[in-house]
Design a protein around this nucleic acid. Structure first.
Lengths: 160, 160
DNA sequence: CATATTACTTAGCTTAGCTAAACAAACTAC
DNA sequence: GTAGTTTGTTTAGCTAAGCTAAGTAATATG
């Protein structure tokens, strides 16, 4: 049976495919950072999410606590993040990015989006405008539970 | 130094992030299939790529031969693909999807896109139009080597 | 204060990636 | 037509990243 919303279904399909190919295209660049995708993603959340609780980080990464424990431990060992105790709750540990972590992420990010940036810059002005104009809708569709109250969409996290 | 195209760079960044979150969101649906992402992806290539050599499959999946050997072995054990010898070359084995494999992939696809379809259908009409209007630009940006002449975007492979 | 809940860690399993090395079949070069 | 090389796949064994279950310590609650 055909879906009830043929236009929406067709759009969903194209969007899905486009997202896959987009990421495939960008993923290659991440290798240069020397970090795996999960580590890069966690580092990104730590860099932009300020000092963050390991539990919160796990939720943000959609991963179970033990997984985060290990990833953060390894990032700490690499000198990219530091773990500090929570002053209010002794059970909690908060992860913060070190200067090195920040730098590494920044360089990786630059590299990663460089190709995409060029592709977008090369678009005819009208098409570029069309793409940019649709970004907020796309973001909403992509993340249903996006922070509504937060003033800015920020979150440049590369995810994984 | 800031990028030469600040607007394009910012768009690239948002696009990257949106793509990640979009796929994360859809990935959850794949769990229902009972197959992991790599297996699902390989199965998809086998289903749509006809009887395919293990080496070719490895290249398509951008993975080393031993990885494919194992994935295909497991898919075969699950009864989703069959391995047949190559009539011309006795070193080669070709993977073909079984009826069950085809069915499973099809259902997964339906499920996966269904969630996104609903989200798109739920958008205000203007926003939906904005999103749909940007899809062709998005597709061009996502796949630089996309078939320009081809009238249809097709390619239903979920990738990984 | 006793109990429950919460935050995190440890232990141990699975899957998926890798490289190196083995093996068999198919080529190629005398 | 045998010797050596190349090719396609597999095996062995490693690491990373995911999971669950169970443990510990701190906090919250009745």
């Amino acid at each position: 049976m055909p879906p009830r919303q043929p236009a929406a279904a067709r759009a969903a399909d194209r969007l899905h495919s486009a997202a896959i190919h987009l990421l495939r295209r960008l993923r290659t660049e991440d290798d240069a950072s020397g970090l795996s995708a999960p580590r890069l993603s966690a580092l990104s959340v730590i860099v932009f999410g300020g000092p963050i609780t390991l539990g919160d980080l796990a939720r943000r990464e959609q991963v179970r606590p033990p997984t985060i424990t290990r990833v953060v431990r390894d990032l700490a060992q690499l000198g990219l993040v530091a773990l500090e105790p929570d002053p209010a709750d002794a059970r909690v540990r908060r992860a913060v990015a070190t200067a090195r972590g920040r730098r590494l992420l920044d360089e990786g990010r630059r590299r990663r989006v460089a190709a995409l940036t060029d592709a977008i810059a090369a678009l005819p002005a009208r098409e570029r405008a069309r793409l940019i104009g649709a970004l907020d809708v796309l973001e909403r569709v992509a993340r249903p539970e996006a922070p509504r109250a937060a003033p800015r969409p920020r979150d440049p996290a590369p995810g994984r």
